[in-house]
Design a protein around this nucleic acid. Structure first.
Lengths: 331, 331
DNA sequence: TTGAAAGCGTTACCAA
DNA sequence: TTGGTAACGCTTTCAA
């Protein structure tokens, strides 16, 4: 194992521990010649600082937890990817924590930040997390929340303007000549789902579109229920806005199983703008969330938090990704 | 912050640090009454052990790194999910590390295990990692490798029998009456891709199927190239085995864009058996990898490693997931 | 069964 | 600018 510690380097370099420490942590506090010598000796010995010991002593680490409900949803996977990149670029090490939608786990992870001496943590809640737990720690520890507006303005957030996104979708469909436009919600209880649901109702009202909300039986596979409901509608909607890309996938898949085709029989627009949608059949039109920005800004908000500034609330603009799952209404 | 430490508990309980420590870490080494008293006081104070300090002192932590190339590939996302669950069930905390296919990063992460005092680490290499680096640490630190056979028998591995998988796919297609069966490779250089490529050739030979390997231009989107090649074939294959589900998605999507349909115009079978395939259009027939077992066994192998047993090499059996993207050849 | 003391690898403060 | 000392929160001998 031959684990080499700071004292080994000190001895080999003929200086004191503290000098070695400074050579690494505050280079300016040590004479250039000394520093270079120390660093060279350290390199020869294959030495590198022990982050655990550092964290313990300093009372702060570079471990930033990113708490997500489910990596299996490509949205969170993409989010994890971009956030990890942003974190790394700034010297943090992202610790991905998967809660599986479990509220208790989320709270556990947030409280574990404590003992990891994390400078801050990032939570991307899907199902409604225990707000109590979250907030209790959010005050003391530092948490930034992605994709969900908090009641508590002390918690910084990055979100995407759902209303604008739904508007974009609706206007796209309207422009294509559709007027009977349904909405396919995902798992209810999800915060973003609720948000988009509200947005749909407002947008529909504003554009004088009679709202039709498809019911999904809360089961494993939402496709069949949604499609059943759609087919039962007395006047079948010609287009549907899915609350997220996965729901759009499921509906299109189910439609296909029944010999129906998208966009010929139904125009479908998703929400998220996953890269995966470009490989779907048909290529999925979707409201794109700026996932890269989401991750980067979350990190920046975290840094703002430790810098002691006031908590920020950034709202990002979604955009329209027009691919092939929507088409002009043929009358 | 009122961070409560072991000494606080000791004082409040009227015992010594070491007693508190033992009450948590080796319950049997302390009298029942004392233990309960200590634990109760600790609970009242909201105390919990600091894992960093523990690791530092013990020289070993419960942080297990899982190093994956890319979470955006749902295979790794599903793998991460199941491995995290298996890890948690056994008291480990999984640290997900994304390398983006970067060999250097993989080596960095593996060497970082050192300073994290990880008992072992799990690597799921996609692109060919720097074997040197990997092995150098693999000896001292303990690494188990997922989904890739190592030259070095000292490194424990869990893999899935590719040859068997390709065989399953081929036999399924043969049974459906196909005889002109192509293979669509993914990114070349990937270990598993190579493995499956070889397996295809062997299986084709064994079944007297003339091998047709579709060429993918090494670009971002493999669909168009693959489909182009397929269409250029003098005698068009009636079925294709994709080297993984993502490739199958891409091909089917591209086929759809060109007005062709699966499985009517071409039967497509994937490889991985992603849950996502059940929501594809059409629902994707695929060779299923036992992802859950992969994760669980990786953890078990790691534990075997720390127990000092000989390195194990587990080979898992794939199975066939028949959905709707393949159909009988209509002559 | 419990207490005391030393130490894991680092940093912060105070002297020199 | 550098060295010494104490401390971070815990575990592990060794005695009692």
């Amino acid at each position: 194992m031959a684990e080499v510690s700071i004292d080994d380097v000190a001895k080999a370099a003929g200086v004191h521990r503290s000098t070695v420490s400074r050579a690494f942590s505050k280079p300016d506090a040590v004479r250039a010649a000394t520093r270079e010598h120390v660093l060279r000796v350290a390199a020869e010995l294959g030495y590198s600082m022990n982050p655990l010991a550092q964290a313990l002593r300093r009372g702060s680490s570079n471990l930033v937890p990113l708490i997500v409900p489910d990596l299996t949803n490509p949205f969170f996977a993409e989010l994890a990817r971009t956030t990890a990149a942003a974190a790394e670029a700034r010297g943090y090490q992202l610790m991905l924590c998967i809660t599986d939608g479990d509220t208790g786990q989320t709270a556990d992870y947030v409280s574990a930040m404590h003992s990891m001496y994390s400078p801050f943590g990032i939570v991307a809640p899907s199902t409604r997390v225990n707000l109590e737990a979250l907030r209790r720690y959010a005050f003391q520890n530092r948490v930034v929340v992605i994709d969900r507006v908090e009641d508590d303005p002390a918690v910084p957030t990055v979100t995407v303007d759902s209303a604008r996104g739904v508007d974009l979708a609706l206007e796209h469909l309207l422009g294509l000549g559709h007027s009977n436009i349904a909405y396919a919600p995902g798992i209810v209880g999800t915060y973003t789902a609720q948000d988009r649901w509200d947005a749909y109702h407002h947008a529909a009202e504003r554009h004088a579109v009679p709202p039709v909300v498809l019911d999904a039986a809360p089961g494993a596979d939402p496709g069949p229920g949604l499609v059943d409901h759609w087919m039962r509608e007395p006047i079948r909607p010609t287009a549907v806005i899915a609350s997220n890309d996965l729901i759009a996938f499921a509906m299109i898949s189910e439609l296909g199983s029944r010999g129906l085709s998208v966009p010929a029989d139904l125009s479908v627009i998703g929400f998220d703008g996953l890269d995966l949608g470009a490989q779907f059949n048909p290529r999925l039109t979707s409201v794109r969330q700026p996932i890269t920005d989401l991750g980067r800004i979350a990190i920046e908000l975290g840094e703002g938090l430790i810098a002691g500034g006031p908590p920020d609330h950034v709202v990002l603009e979604p955009s329209l990704l027009i691919r092939s799952s929507t088409q002009e209404l043929r009358s």
